[in-house]
Amino acid sequence: MFQAEETRKLDRFIQLLLANATVFVSGEKLAEPLNVSRMTICNWVHRLREQGMVIEIKPKTGYRLTQVPDLLLPQLIKRELRTKVLGKSLYHYFQVGSTNDVAHQLAQQGVAEGALIMAEQQTHGRGRLGRDWYSEKSVGIYLSLILRPDLKPRHASIINLAAAVALSQAIENTCALTTDIRWPNDVLVNNKKCSGILTEMSADLDQIKYMVVGIGINVNHPSFPKSLEGRASSLFLEGGRRFSRIEIILALLRFFEDLYFQLQEQGSDEVLKQWIRRSSFARGKEVSVDLGDKKIHGTTMGLGKEGTLRVKLRSGLIEDVMSGDVVIWERANDRPRG
């Protein structure tokens, strides 16, 4: 496992290789600006080759990068980025515990809004309430954004819906797949979960200090561990081909930024409208909701002003669902389905 300092140096090493692609560079020339030994360079080269980079080694001459794998390198993303704030600063790691944890640390150090943290692999990818997020190396997108929105904390949850709408737009636009959104923020393809959003906030009573929006997308996963079979899927498995992770990220940032600005300037109407348009869960869906202390069952009736899910119970009462897991109610076997 890489230490933080070593990871930073390794990233700079890759930049050096990229800058000198197609020519041989000596180990000495690579080692000197990074203040590491030629032995370290040699180790890194072997490690990167294991990760899929094609680097030629010519004894007594040096190293030559001939092929770049599908890595989320900041240099490659910056070239195409058309956003104003989101992705303004980029952090790319080969391996982290969780991009959300890194984002929290950076945010606490005062890193500006829009910082994008990406990792090829997460060793402790997190979902909500300590659930794990399976983060296989370099086939998925594991990113976190730092936001400092001009919103009251009590109006902040709508960001979650905005992120889901943007993710749905990004997948439909770049992959030509049809998506659905399960309240509040699960983007589904063919009714299967191909992505997850974990939004965390640090706030006091009347001010948001910062928010971290973590997004995991299963892009090119060829398969999943047995424990996830039937529940998780990837865009590759649903779409039948591989997709460019960078294109999806670029689209996601663009759509999310539009909604994010709109939200702060004009309120939540547009986000709610878009969400309702993109979700089969918005209206007329028979669902059951696990509220923790009780379970309710009814028919969805749109969204409340803050993005709550309105569910009409058999008794005629309308419940505004604020949290809890929503599942489709299947009358046939009288049991909820995932």
Partner: peptide, 13 residues
């Protein structure tokens, strides 16, 4: 405090 899957960590001041 969780609201619509937004997790708000409350810290002591």
């Amino acid at each position: 405090i969780e609201a619509m899957k937004l997790m708000n960590e409350i810290e002591s001041e």
